[in-house]
């Protein structure tokens, strides 16, 4: 397996977005691309990442291989890569180590690292194709701000979506609060849009702590999509660009 990405910053940002939720994960390499599925230790949330082969500058994979990686160790290695460095990832048949090569844009600095891989016995879940009742697209910076603002007031947030608005409500020890967003009428920048597609209104409760973990993916994409259906896990998607891939989070709802 060998793959090369022009910008190391993408992998760095992906890692920042998952390392607080997941400690070890299998990076599954196949001819289609690089993917990862992992749950947090309490098994109520899941990360699903896909980087399509065509999003790489070079991608070669003869046989599917899983690279078991400790994310704290990978973070240490990726700290040695400049944001604009290219990154080449290599692994052989044995799958006991992975090689990382970082090259500066001017090609005058080359660094090489080897990471010991581990055997990870991870449980893969089958995520069904779902027709969600409500889909909300909003700026990822807005999502991050709401989660961080409301997170200081309580542990859970009630998300209510109607045709007119999406409302985030918190009810905590010191009091309560809410943030309500209306779909944008006048749009200056596409990245500032709030869009709501609704089959039926939903009203669900989620743990703010997890929503805040997911907000670490905000640097990956200008917009985030929240998909909700009653009594079903919330899906939060950050797309890397049209052809590149995505990072999705799933979170089980809190049920009375």
């Amino acid at each position: 397996f060998e793959a090369r990405l022009t910008q190391a910053s993408l992998i760095k940002k992906i890692l920042e977005a998952i390392k607080d939720l997941v400690t070890d994960a299998n990076f599954d390499c196949s001819p289609e691309g690089l993917s990862l599925q992992a749950m947090d230790s309490s098994h109520v949330s899941l990360v699903s990442m896909v980087l399509h082969a065509q999003g790489f500058e070079m991608f070669r994979c003869q046989r599917a291989v899983s690279l078991g990686i400790n994310l704290a160790s990978l973070t240490k290695i990726l700290k040695c890569a400049g944001n604009d460095d290219s990154i080449t990832l290599r692994a052989d048949e044995k799958g006991d180590k992975a090689e990382f090569v970082f090259e500066s844009q001017s090609q005058d600095r080359l660094s090489e690292f080897e990471l010991k891989l581990m055997d990870i016995d991870s449980e893969h879940l089958g995520i069904p194709d779902t027709k969600y009742s409500a889909i909300v697209e909003m700026p990822s910076s807005e999502y991050r701000r709401i989660c961080s603002d409301l997170g200081v007031m309580g542990d859970t947030v009630r998300i209510s979506v109607s045709k007119e608005s999406v409302k985030f409500q918190v009810d905590g020890d010191i009091g309560k609060g809410s943030v309500c967003l209306h779909p944008s009428s006048v749009v200056d920048k596409p990245t500032e849009v709030v869009k709501i597609s609704l089959e039926e209104p939903v009203d669900m409760i989620f743990s703010i702590r997890y929503l805040n973990y997911f907000a670490k993916a905000a640097p990956l994409s200008d917009t985030v999509t929240l998909s909700l259906s009653k009594d079903f896990p919330l899906q939060i998607e950050f797309k890397f660009g049209e052809q590149m891939g995505y990072l999705r989070y799933y979170l089980a709802p809190k049920i009375d």
Binding site: V44, L46, E123, L125, I205, Y250, A252
Partner: peptide, 14 residues
């Protein structure tokens, strides 16, 4: 009482 179930109760193992 508010409960949060594990994801495998929704998605099932592959």
């Amino acid at each position: 009482c508010v409960q949060q179930q594990e994801l495998k109760n929704y998605f099932g193992r592959k």
